[in-house]
């Protein structure tokens, strides 16, 4: 068996080992290269920054626990930015598995840091089924869709919700999502009610939404962990997304290297076969 055959039949576990080394090594020996800000992230940051004090923002937790490495840093930077500017927050989720629990945990933890009061500065509405109906229904009446908040307190008992009846009372919608719900925040909420929508989405979804940003239907876009890292930098609060960038860099170089090696092996093998024939 020659070298190229060996490369072609390499046990996948050697590749796994290389992945493990590449992702662990940067945490032991960090490089901390600068993170550059993309225009889409800057646009979202500027949109939030331009909101006046005491505005009301709807923040969504439209993601499953599977993608928290990408999405939770986005929720945290959003909450940092909004609480720091004394903006009031209404959270919702259209994700049944974990959405309400993650929204409760993250918002309450961040609110404690900023001394915010539940019901006055922020409210967690929780989950309701069939997101098309939820998104459309909140255009007429949020209370009709959500008679209570996530922990079953009637909305009439929450001072903040006395000011929020439907999208007319929301100044900005900050969507953090890992699934197709983003399309409906744009096609139903932004298009019908005119409320500006900015998004933080997983990297897998991000390329699609350049079409919405470009058409002015979406106000800014965070794409994956890198997007969250850029926002952390803009806020001056580097956290998990920023510390993950070294590992992200090395892993990308590894994958590019693996594609190259695989192709060299493939073409060398083909040439040898051609010579034998």
């Amino acid at each position: 068996m020659n070298f190229w055959n060996k490369i072609d039949t390499l046990d996948r576990r050697w590749v796994y080992l290389l992945v493990a080394i590449s992702v662990i090594l940067p945490f032991i020996l960090p490089v901390k290269l600068p993170v550059y800000i993309t225009p889409e992230t800057q646009q979202l940051y500027d949109a939030v920054e331009s909101l006046p004090d005491s505005s009301i923002v709807m923040l969504t937790f439209d993601y499953y626990p599977s993608t928290i490495a990408e999405t939770e840093p986005m929720s945290r930077v959003a909450l940092h930015h909004l609480f720091r500017k004394n903006i009031r927050i209404v959270t919702v989720t259209t994700v049944p598995l974990g959405g309400p629990s993650m929204a409760e945990q993250v918002t309450r933890e961040m609110a404690e840091q900023y001394g915010k009061v539940y019901g006055v500065d922020f409210v967690n509405l929780g989950y309701k089924a069939n997101y098309v109906a939820v998104l459309k229904g909140m255009g007429s009446s949020i209370e009709a869709i959500y008679p209570t908040d996530n922990l079953s307190t009637p909305l009439s008992e929450l001072p903040l919700m006395n000011e929020v009846k439907n999208y007319d009372d929301i100044d900005f919608i900050y969507v953090v999502a890992d699934n197709g719900i983003v399309d409906y925040w744009i096609s139903i909420v932004n298009a019908l009610y005119g409320t500006p929508v900015g998004c933080g989405v997983t990297a897998v979804m991000a390329p699609k939404f350049y079409a919405f940003v470009s058409a002015g239907q979406m106000t800014g876009l965070l794409g994956g962990m890198k997007g969250a890292a850029e926002y952390e930098l803009l806020l001056g609060q580097p956290a998990r997304a920023t510390t993950g960038m070294d590992a992200q860099s090395l892993m990308h170089l590894l994958i590019i290297g693996l594609v190259l090696m695989g192709n060299i092996g493939y073409f060398a093998g083909r040439r040898q076969k051609g010579k034998k024939a």
Partner: peptide
Amino acid sequence: VMGRVSLLIG
């Protein structure tokens, strides 16, 4: 690739 790598980094 970026997304999948991020999940592992988490």
